[in-house]
């Protein structure tokens, strides 16, 4: 019997009677990270990494939740469960499950490069590896973070000399904090959209050292934005909320910006292929480092990725899940826009 079944509610470990990142309410859920397609509402009990805990509470409200640290293990109905850094966002973890001398690892979302805030990805030896494959095509090969950060800084300084505000589009949890690391030394003020501000406050309260930033408020005088930086989530892009920053340039930070057509479709002035997911080479390296005999590819280009693995001597199969990867990681659009509307009034 496999250690994990792919059920309509999500990844299920029958031996331990728990789910991993279920997309329907269950009794016991272990959560890889706090993004909305992985951490969903309605379960009776949650277990996550200690850094995910405040974020989970921010997003899911009053829930029954416990946390552990990386490499700390707990026993659930005789199954040994431990968390290991995934490098995706703050608190993101791979989940290792051991039972009867068999080890499975669920990757959640991950990236190989150390971004300085999410913890460095650690390969975990296992028999079976359930891997994401959001960017599972060889066209996705990221430049080092240093280089992309330099591009972003150059773009900001161009905007500044042209008297424009730089509006950076980044997911409120993860990308926004990463981008802030890039610009913290630049001599500019950082303004945050309400959705990002909420995450920012939560992380500050949890003791994270983040750059100084100000929230965009209806009363903030327009001149304050000029030549400075606004960080906003994708849901704010193209809405009337942006008007007060004019004149501005929009720079989208996402792995999808690797392809020109996507930059043009987003109508962005600049696209930065900065991703919190592993690129093609990262995925292959990660799979090899686990030493797994069998790989399941979940969301993204799972068909291509698993076929390539099969052709290269690693048994692999694709699995249909409801994880969405980077493209459709939905912000809690209704709540943020209501919040912003309240701010406007």
């Amino acid at each position: 019997m496999p250690l994990i079944d792919f059920t309509h509610k999500g990844l299920y470990c029958a031996a331990g009677d728990f789910y991993i990142d279920p997309w329907q309410p269950v009794n016991k859920a272990i959560i890889t990270h706090a993004h909305s397609d992985h951490a969903r509402w309605g379960s009776n009990y949650y277990l996550c990494h200690e850094a995910s805990l405040p974020l989970l509470k921010l997003r899911l409200g009053d829930i029954a939740v416990e946390s552990i640290q990386w490499n700390e293990s707990v026993n659930i109905n005789g199954v040994k469960v431990s968390l290991h850094p995934a490098g995706h966002i703050i608190g993101s973890s791979q989940i290792r499950i051991e039972y009867n001398n068999e080890v499975w690892v669920v990757s959640g979302d991950y990236k190989i490069e150390d971004d300085g805030i999410s913890g460095k990805f650690e390969p975990v030896k296992c028999n079976v590896f359930i891997s994401e494959s959001t960017f599972g095509l060889p066209i996705y090969n990221w430049k080092p973070q240093e280089e992309i950060f330099q591009n972003i800084k150059d773009w900001i300084s161009d905007n500044r000399s042209a008297g424009r505000t730089s509006v950076l589009i980044a997911y409120s949890l993860g990308k926004a904090q990463r981008v802030m690391q890039c610009i913290k030394d630049a001599d500019v003020k950082i303004f945050l959209h309400g959705a990002i501000w909420n995450v920012h406050q939560t992380l500050l309260d949890a003791g994270y050292d983040l750059p100084v930033a100000e929230r965009v408020l209806p009363g903030t005088p327009k001149e304050h934005f000029k030549g400075n930086i606004v960080i906003a989530p994708p849901s704010a892009d193209g809405t009337p909320w942006m008007k007060k920053f004019a004149p501005y340039s929009v720079g989208v930070c996402s792995g999808w910006m690797q392809v020109r057509g996507n930059v043009r479709r987003r109508n962005a002035d600049a696209g930065f292929a900065l991703s919190d997911h592993a690129d093609w080479k990262g995925l292959l390296d990660a799979v090899k480092a686990t030493g797994a005999e069998k790989v399941f590819a979940t969301h993204g280009f799972q068909a291509a990725f698993s076929r390539y693995l099969n052709e290269n001597g690693i048994e692999a199969a694709e699995v249909k899940t409801e994880f969405r990867g980077e493209e459709e990681e939905q912000e809690k659009r209704s709540t943020t826009s209501e919040q912003e509307r309240a701010d406007e009034n």
Binding site: L137, P138, I139, V259, R260, G261, F301, A304, R307, Y308, E311
Partner: peptide, 15 residues
Amino acid sequence: LPAWLFEECYHTVGD
């Protein structure tokens, strides 16, 4: 790269 993977990339990039 194998031909099928090249094709797959081409259909995703569209150019």
